[in-house]
């Protein structure tokens, strides 16, 4: 498809317009944090950021989501479902986080069971990606098939080049958007900008310091569930908190429960849940199939590098590095992958 140009000076105008016409989600500064929030205009938006503290996955799978409300008196019951999603633009998301949304798609848009809440948001959303300008020491998207300037999953991808944004139109949704705001998305000769973008991508791809290679790791996992490796330091130091799963852009597990508001009414809520919590698999009868940190850590990392691949033919990790940064005890998926690779090579 075609490409366009936005002058940096016009970004504010674009954001203000988008906020007027859509629910606009964009990165904002909240004290020390960079988070994706719904914004009312350009003034709150922060585009000069490395990686948000929490991924924008909440745009499609909010931490709390009402699936319906009910009015129940024992012998009468009324169920009311919320309206479908409103037109939304997710602006300024990084390529790794956008790739992560693609790992959600087969989960929620399954063969047998769909998910109206997810699909409604997905269908009504336009994703405007923003190429990275910097690689952090914790980044490893290249090892998961992505890249700092990867277009995968974006409807439009913006790349900052000097005082301009080079805009790649990737989907029809993206095309419709640039056509609707054609006074901002200027039609110009973009040959030089395209070249500059390739240069940037090349430069950034040389800046990764974490060496991660998945080759052979899944094959090792396929044939070895029990490995002494899982009894090592990681399960000893894990504190069973939910950080890695909550900051992870591909973690999609949830819980469902009722939230009563009194007077026979309430909401059914689904909210993020974490496989690192002991209660996650604890059955009412007391049996727990993953009773210790060993089983839970193994399950989480196997899910990322094997189970998600088995089921959906996609790695369940995009290399955003958030779990690496945020884990209080420095459990590091890249170390786990490399250690397993070593185990595979020595086997």
């Amino acid at each position: 498809m075609e490409s366009r140009v936005v002058n940096k000076g016009q970004i504010s105008e674009l954001l203000d317009k988008l906020a007027k016409d859509y629910n606009l989600f964009a990165p904002v500064k909240d004290e020390t944090m960079t988070l994706f929030r719904r914004v009312s205009g350009a003034q709150d938006v922060l585009l000069d950021y490395n990686n948000s503290d929490i991924s924008p996955k909440g745009c499609f799978l909010p931490q709390n989501e009402k699936t319906f409300s009910y009015m129940y008196t024992g012998d009468s019951l009324e169920i009311n479902k919320p309206e479908g999603a409103q037109k939304t633009v997710l602006f300024g998301a990084r390529p790794c986080d956008i790739k992560a949304v693609l790992t959600f798609d087969p989960v929620f848009e399954g063969v047998k069971f769909g998910d109206e809440y997810y699909s409604s948001k997905r269908e009504n959303s336009i994703i405007i990606g923003l190429s990275c300008t910097k690689v952090l020491s914790t980044c490893f998207c290249y090892a998961m098939g992505g890249g700092p300037c990867d277009i995968t999953g974006s409807d439009l991808l913006l790349t900052e080049i000097g005082d301009k944004y080079y805009v790649e139109v990737i989907t029809e949704k993206g095309q419709a958007l640039v056509d609707a705001y054609s006074q901002i998305f200027a039609k110009q000769d973009t040959a030089q900008l395209a070249k500059d973008k390739d240069e940037l991508a090349k430069k950034l791809s040389g800046e990764f310091v974490r060496k991660v290679d998945l080759t052979g790791v899944k094959e090792l996992m396929d044939n070895n569930f029990e490995l002494p490796y899982w009894s090592g330091d990681d399960q000893k130091k894990c504190i069973s908190c939910g950080i890695c799963t909550y900051v992870c852009p591909t973690c999609h597990c949830f819980d469902i429960f009722d939230y009563t508001t009194g007077d026979f009414t309430g909401d059914r809520i689904r909210c993020w849940d974490s496989c690192m919590y002991p209660e996650y698999t604890l059955e009412a009868g007391g049996h727990n199939p993953r009773p210790t940190r060993k089983e839970r850590i193994r399950n989480r990392f196997m899910h990322k590098i094997k189970y998600h691949l088995d089921r959906y033919n996609m790695v369940g990790c995009v290399g955003c590095g958030r779990c690496v940064i945020k884990c209080p005890v420095n459990i590091d998926i890249t170390k786990i992958i490399n250690d397993l690779k070593e185990v595979a090579q020595n086997a």
Binding site: G110, F113, Y280, A284, D310
Partner: peptide, 24 residues
């Protein structure tokens, strides 16, 4: 088999045994 389940649709994640979801 029995496992703890929340959605029963193969999405909520907890009833996996390896790559299989007990619910679906």
């Amino acid at each position: 088999l029995e496992m703890r389940m929340k959605c029963c649709l193969g999405k909520c994640g907890r009833c996996n045994v390896g790559s299989k979801f007990i619910c679906v």
